[in-house]
């Protein structure tokens, strides 16, 4: 019996047959990280999932910012947006980064205004914690 590498979901909180709780707290540091990355996949469209997941495993300080980002984007842009994650790498420059791509239905002027609002009300307060590994852009839907 064989299995191959291509993909790969992680063990989420297994539903226990025994025990009284419905939603047990995840107290494992190892699985907490893996579970949160999987949950992020419910919020964002992962463009290159394997690369994004590996990147988040090694840059785990980004995970909680991504949960917060989802909330902030929905607050400012509303519900009619798609939120994507894209991993970008430039091996020659030894540079890689994760981009939140907000695909919105708004005309350019309105989209720029919201993009600026997101920067002023959220991103500017956390950007020094991101080590230049997370950014965001807005694109038309």
């Amino acid at each position: 019996m064989q299995f191959s590498s291509q993909y790969i979901q992680i063990p989420t909180n297994y539903y226990p047959l025994y025990g009284s709780f419905v939603n047990p707290p995840e107290t494992s540091i190892f699985f907490d990280k893996q579970n949160k990355i999987t949950r992020l996949e419910n919020l964002y469209y992962f463009h290159n999932p394997d690369e994004i997941k590996r990147f988040l495993l090694t840059h785990d300080y980004l995970i909680e910012h991504l949960f917060e980002a989802y909330d902030q984007i929905r607050r400012i842009f509303g519900e009619n947006v798609e939120i994507h994650l894209e991993y970008t790498i430039d091996p020659e420059e030894d540079w890689d980064e994760l981009f939140i791509v907000i695909k919105s239905p708004y005309p350019a002027e309105k989209a720029v205004e919201l993009e600026r609002k997101l920067f002023d009300e959220w991103f500017v307060h956390i950007m020094d914690k991101l080590n230049n590994k997370l950014n965001f852009i807005e694109e038309p839907l």
Binding site: F3, Y7, Q9, I10, P11, P16, L17, G19, Q34, K53
Partner: peptide, 27 residues
């Protein structure tokens, strides 16, 4: 197969305890 999660809960000590055993693919 590409991914799997196998979990079995084995009762111990007259079901006072259980061993939850999981083998699974991870990131």
């Amino acid at each position: 197969y590409k991914s799997f999660q196998l979990t079995v809960e084995f009762p111990y000590e007259n079901e006072r305890d259980a061993l939850r055993l999981t083998l699974a693919t991870i990131i």
